[in-house]
């Protein structure tokens, strides 16, 4: 009485399920970047006698340059090319179709970064806790705060940091998220107001000479340079990264009731971020 189908990976039902999975996975994140569907690896549809179906999907996702706080639809985001160290997510996703509506009920992801295209003279991704890179981010924030009138920002999260060897020393490239802050003396605290202004910034330059541009989620701020008077150093309220994480990874979520649908890859699961408590649809 149970019907098992293996439709083509590029079939409409596979594409529909994969896009639901992509949006669901992106909605799980509070840090890092949105991921875009790259390829549907496999699909199986189990249809029960009551007509409800379970989709077991294996998909390949690629990191985009849109931060998860950026309201830009993932379809309009740019996938990072290999040369900029692409980050790939492989996910097993279980979805249920009840009454025609597809919902994700479980997933498991592992994340890997491309290493094969690293070249001499190119930007190389640095660990998010790299001291020199974080100093560069802090210098970028000071540069930014020097040119913003009546408003100060503090660091919410560092998204990416990379460096390149040039004649004047290491050149850094950084991406970070800022939030409006209340600053007194040398201490800045993020505004708790949910309407506090947030932005996604990119900085480029030598260690103490960053050029910064910020996108305040649809408002592009002017590019500035580092010729302003320095303000007191701001304590970085950086999203904490432990161990040797090099990038933001896809969250791993596991529904024990559907464990049979998810492939057993315990060794690979060790690479994912510690499991977030599952909040599964009833």
């Amino acid at each position: 009485q149970i019907n098992v189908q293996r439709p083509m990976c590029d079939s409409p039902e596979a594409e529909e399920a994969a896009l639901v999975a992509q949006d669901y996975l992106n909605a799980q994140h509070k840090h890092g970047y949105k991921y875009a569907l790259n390829r549907i690896e496999d699909i199986k549809i189990v249809t029960m006698p009551d007509g409800n179906s379970t989709f077991v999907l294996e998909i390949d996702l690629l990191e985009t340059d849109c931060h998860v706080l950026d309201p830009t639809p993932v379809a309009n985001c740019t996938v990072r090319p290999k040369i900029l160290t692409a980050v790939e997510g492989d996910c097993d996703v279980v979805l249920k179709r009840v009454g025609g509506v597809l919902t994700v009920t479980a997933f498991k992801c592992k994340t890997e970064e491309s290493r094969e295209d690293i070249c001499v003279g190119c930007f190389n991704l640095l660990p998010l806790n790299d001291t020199a890179a974080l100093e560069f981010v802090n210098a970028s924030l000071i540069t930014l705060n020097n040119i913003t009138a009546n408003v100060s920002y503090t660091l919410l999260e560092v998204g990416r940091v990379s460096s390149q060897v040039v004649s004047g020393g290491p050149q850094y490239s950084a991406e970070f998220v800022i939030v409006e802050a209340n600053c007194t003396d040398s201490v800045c605290l993020p505004l708790s107001d949910p309407l506090a202004e947030r932005g996604f910034c990119t900085a480029l330059g030598l260690h103490s000479q960053p050029t910064v541009a910020c996108k305040m989620f649809n408002i592009l701020m002017p590019v500035v340079d580092a010729n302003n008077t320095a303000v007191p150093a701001l304590p970085p309220a950086v999203h904490v990264h432990t161990g040797s994480l090099r990038h933001h990874k896809l969250t791993s979520l596991h529904d024990p009731y559907l464990v049979g649908f998810l492939s057993a890859e315990s060794a690979e699961s060790a690479e994912v971020v510690p499991v977030v408590p599952a909040v599964v649809d009833a």
């Binding site: 293996r6 439709p7 083509m8 590029d10 875009a36 496999d42 699909i43």
Partner: peptide
């Protein structure tokens, strides 16, 4: 008992699209 021959004459090359994995949207 009679048997039914279901053999169909093949007149051209068979091009079977791979079922899975699907197309690569960006790069492999």
């Amino acid at each position: 008992p009679a048997t039914l021959d279901l053999t169909v004459a093949q007149t051209g090359p068979v091009l079977l699209a791979p079922v899975c994995p699907g197309r690569v949207r960006f790069f492999k």
